Simulated scan of single mutants.
Amino acid sequence: MKAIWNNTVIAESDNTKIVENNHYFPMDDIRKEYFKASNTHTRCPWKGKASYFHVEVGKEKNEDAAWFYPSASLAAKPIENYVAFWKGIEVTE
């Protein structure tokens, strides 16, 4: 699977996990040069507290476009520290 934004592959993996129709990519499979930590956090009732990344490609910034669970709940442990995308980021094979 690949995650693409602004015609740039920002993540690529053969080991994504699908939860609620989202592909979660292992943290080691994202291209970290495109990711900047965000101060945004949300809470999922069953997965726990999510943290976010801004995605930056060239001079363009997609705020809070990627999220992950650094300390997932017991039910969501399989996706702990796996990254998912939204806000126009295309996930494709």
Results as ranks from 00 to 15, higher is better:
M1T: 13
A3L: 02
A3V: 00
I4M: 07
W5Q: 11
N6I: 00
N7Y: 06
N7V: 00
T8E: 06
E12D: 13
E12V: 02
S13I: 05
S13F: 06
D14M: 09
T16D: 04
T16I: 04
K17T: 10
K17Y: 05
K17A: 03
K17G: 05
I18C: 07
V19I: 15
E20V: 07
N21K: 13
N21V: 08
N21P: 02
N21F: 09
N22S: 11
H23C: 12
H23N: 14
H23E: 11
F25N: 02
F25P: 04
P26A: 02
D28Y: 07
D29F: 01
E33S: 02
E33R: 06
F35T: 03
K36W: 02
S38E: 06
T40E: 05
T40W: 00
H41S: 08
T42M: 00
T42W: 00
R43V: 15
R43G: 06
C44W: 07
W46R: 03
K47G: 09
G48T: 00
K49W: 05
K49S: 10
A50D: 01
A50Y: 00
S51T: 00
F53A: 04
F53T: 09
F53G: 08
F53D: 10
V55R: 08
V57N: 05
G58H: 11
K59C: 07
E60R: 11
N62R: 13
E63L: 14
D64G: 07
A65P: 10
A65L: 10
A66H: 09
W67E: 00
W67A: 00
F68L: 14
Y69M: 11
Y69E: 08
P70S: 02
P70L: 01
S71D: 15
L74G: 10
L74I: 12
A75T: 15
K77V: 07
K77I: 03
E80K: 02
E80H: 01
E80A: 01
E80P: 00
E80W: 00
N81V: 05
N81W: 12
Y82V: 03
V83Y: 12
F85P: 05
W86R: 08
I89C: 05
I89P: 08
E90Y: 03
V91T: 09
T92L: 15
T92N: 13
T92E: 14
E93G: 14
E93W: 11
